[in-house]
Design a protein around this nucleic acid. Structure first.
Length: 490
RNA sequence: GCUCGUAUAGUGUAGUGGCCCAUCAUGAAGGACUCUCAUUCCUUCGACCCGGGUUCAAAUCCCGGUACGAGCACCA
């Protein structure tokens, strides 16, 4: 008899159903009404990881079919692909822009009317709602095909204005789920007043597909095999499946994830952030207080940490709330081994040191990697700086240097007596800087929704902008320029 | 209101009828190492929403309840 193996914990993402190596096509479809947020990262990471695992393709699709409620932001069309590539480590295999695919949508809309599984409905939203609730068919549902095609022309040629007519998919008015009853597929937008921001599109079209129709047609046209998205789109799947049945297509495998909140941020709405930026509340999309990908990247969260974070959460349908410490933990793992150590002294207090000592003090660049060399401090002028808050105690050890006793006097600068160079007791170890080895600098930190600036002295360094460093006893930070750091997390 | 979905330690997650008095991570507490409040390592803490049922056997299947979330937009 074979002995059964002990069950092993599954690593990484769950198995993709009905996946064939090399044939998997997934997509991530954001609305380009702003750059990517932390939440979008989930869609990119999960879909991208599966595409990579199965040797398949990831489509980046811009669902930019609304010009009124959530109008696209032109810069997002270039920023999003860059951010996706940064996050994944590879470029999405295909980029599709919905507003360029309008001919496809029109073609399928006409087909739908010709085959009589769609109709032009001239009821108002209110009127149709009453039909939906009472499970009764609206009069437009029985239009002849020829009439529907006539009305379709009127939608397109400007005879009808927004609100006059929509194209609906015939499902059944007695469906259990009210959300699915004869759902709307295309509507008219006032593109004269609200042109599409892409100049090549502008006011060219009046009739625009709604998400469920656009997405359904596009997934079919692109040969998407698996859709992984938020569970708020569950009814969307059901609507689209009904459309696929009309067309005789097979719907892709679908998986859903639940809603994620970050304890410190709450939810993240691109539209809201856009308003707050435009009103001047935030400096830009990469303002460190915002939960955007560009802000996280700027403050020093790595792509690897974000990937690990989202893969670890997986694709459960539970609604969850995660603390930032989880993300930070992944980030620490991804940067600590590389991060050179630097000293940053907040509220520096000058000390004059008395006693015998060598003129040069060396400390390691990275304690776990002695081969990375030493940082040298010239203390020949006996002048050093420590943090004001460390003066709470008078017996201290200057890290890598010597013990000191702060002398009780009113002298300026304050005096300190040097003690043992060997570490021979348990007194607190503090970081410090020499007079000549540091310059004035600023540490920027986003804390509790506030942008705080800490002035202080930063150890001289020649690390290029963007380097991740660890500031001793404070936390990890990213080099913005020679005298500015931004705190990633502590 | 109608419809759909989810419920495992503080947080997140594994688990698809026996390997489960339940996995891993994170967190907290303690300790080792370390001239950082870092990294690494060790120890400890801590959970199957409730009630029925099916079964020799249920975290796992069924029913009911409860809680939470989502959809019912001419937004995505």
């Amino acid at each position: 008899m074979e002995k059964r193996e002990k069950k092993e914990r599954r690593e990484g993402l769950p198995e993709l159903k009905n996946a064939v190596k090399g044939k998997v096509v997934l997509r991530f479809a954001p609305n380009p009404n702003g750059p990517l947020s932390f939440g979008h990262a989930r869609g990119i990471v999960i879909n991208g990881s599966y595409a990579k695992e199965w040797d398949g393709e990831l489509i980046l699709r811009f669902d930019d079919t609304d010009t009124v409620v959530k109008p696209p932001l032109p810069s997002a069309y270039t920023q999003i692909p860059e951010e996706a590539e940064w996050l994944l480590g590879f470029k999405p295999h295909r980029v599709v822009i919905a507003s360029e695919q309008m001919p496809h949508y029109y073609e399928h809309a006409v087909k739908m009317l010709e085959r009589n599984f769609g109709y032009v409905c001239q009821c108002s939203g209110e009127e149709f709602k009453a039909f939906r609730v009472s499970k009764t068919e609206c009069p437009c549902r029985s239009n002849e095909v020829s009439l529907n095609l006539e009305l379709w022309e009127k939608m397109n040629d400007g005879t009808f204005v927004p609100g006059d007519a929509v194209v609906r998919v015939k499902t059944a008015m007695d469906l259990k789920n009210p959300a699915l009853r004869d759902w709307p597929a295309l509507r008219i937008q006032n593109t004269a007043e609200h042109p599409h921001p892409r100049p090549s599109i502008g006011s060219k079209y009046r009739v625009w597909p709604l998400l469920d129709f656009q997405s359904a047609v596009e997934d079919h046209v692109q040969g998407v095999t698996h859709i992984i998205r938020g569970k708020d789109l569950m009814d969307s799947t059901r609507k689209q499946t009904l459309l696929y049945e009309h067309f005789g297509w097979t719907y892709p495998e679908t998986m859903y994830w639940g809603r994620v909140k970050v304890h410190e941020w709450g939810g993240f709405s691109t539209s809201q952030m856009r308003r707050d930026i435009e009103s001047g509340l935030f400096k830009g999309w990469d303002d460190p207080r915002l939960p955007t990908l560009s802000a996280l990247r700027k403050t020093g969260i790595t792509a690897a940490a974000l990937r690990d974070f989202w893969v670890e959460l997986g694709i459960t349908q539970k609604d969850i709330s995660v603390p930032l410490s989880t993300l930070y933990s992944h980030n620490t793992k991804s940067i600590d081994d590389d991060a050179p150590r630097l000293s940053f002294v907040r509220k520096p207090v000058n000390l004059k040191i008395k006693g015998e000592h060598s003129n040069i003090v060396n400390v390691e660049v990275h304690p776990n990697h002695p081969n990375r060399g030493m940082r040298s401090f010239d203390v020949s002028n006996q002048s050093i700086w420590i943090e004001e808050q460390d003066l709470a105690q008078s017996e201290l050890r200057l890290k890598g240097f010597a013990n000191i006793s702060i002398l009780d006097s009113d002298a300026q600068p304050r005096m300190a007596q040097l003690g043992s160079v060997e570490r021979n007791d348990r007194r607190p170890i503090v970081h410090w800087l020499s007079d000549t080895g540091a310059k004035k600098a600023t540490l920027i930190a986003a804390e509790d929704g506030e942008l705080n600036r800490y002035e202080g002295l930063l150890e001289n360094h020649t690390y290029p902008n963007g380097t991740m460093v660890q500031i001793e006893r404070i936390g990890y930070a990213r080099v913005i320029d020679n005298t500015t750091l931004i705190l990633t997390h502590s």
